[in-house]
Write a protein that binds this DNA or RNA. Structure first.
Lengths: 135, 135
DNA sequence: CTGTATCCACACGGATACTG
DNA sequence: CAGTATCCGTGTGGATACAG
């Protein structure tokens, strides 16, 4: 997939991280931030309409439309369309989408728990960098 | 952070997903694919040098440099520089970096377990879309 | 209300060359 | 070996207008 995987000639090559390629692939699919946030939102409220999700996440129409289409295509989200006037479309998680909640929640929890620590580390790092620059 | 969060005036507003903004923020930091792959690699091998990581992941010099700097700044990775000739720099996970392994591994496992199901869902979706187009 | 289409700015990220 | 600097193509994603 990447030249580096082929060119590597020493003891470190693709064999040392055989899953990196596939993990990379899946993360590119469902790992982007909008997908994750949509899944989190749906997992919290069960069923949401298009504009509810839109307002809820602060996402643009375009990106929400694209994200939902991809999630539906990947089988994580079920789309239910009511041909009324005005139209009404509801989104909910499929069983596979539900199963995705668990790892996503783990990631979200870690994020929230370590947000402060990361901020602190950044401050320290920046202060140190500043000192090195002036010193 | 996003206009939508402020503009929302009906029953659905930022209060319904209060963490979305912050989760979004953290995911933007450590959720990108190179960061995740670097953490996975370091968690597998403990300590790696710059070029080892580079060959291992098939990442460009530029992106690896940027990614490692951010990870060090966020306190996930520890950088150890040996001022020898030629220079030698080793990277390893900090305790916080170690704690990140768990949610990342959960996500990676889910990804691997559901890759086939996703592919299958896509095929079905695409076939259906094709049928609708022609019919 | 639920989208699609178009335009456009900007960040991501690879290739290449250069430095210590 | 371990980076930094530069160039530049591409994708991401918002704004806007329009359609069903």
């Amino acid at each position: 997939m990447y030249p580096g995987h082929i060119i590597g000639t020493t003891m470190i090559d693709s064999e040392q991280c055989p899953d990196c390629g596939r993990i990379n692939e899946v993360l590119s699919r469902v790992g982007d931030r909008w997908s994750v946030l949509v899944v989190i939102s749906l997992s919290q409220y069960g069923t949401l309409r298009f504009n509810e999700l839109k307002r809820n996440l602060g996402i643009s129409q375009r990106m929400l439309s694209l994200t939902l289409r991809e999630l539906a295509r990947d089988g994580l989200v079920k789309r239910t369309h009511y041909p009324t006037i005005p139209p009404k479309v509801e989104y909910t998680l499929t069983p596979m989408g539900e199963s995705f909640r668990e790892p996503v929640r783990a990631l979200g929890n870690w994020a929230l728990e370590n947000l402060a620590a990361i901020d602190s580390a950044r401050e320290k790092y920046d202060a140190q960098a500043e000192k090195l620059k002036s010193g």
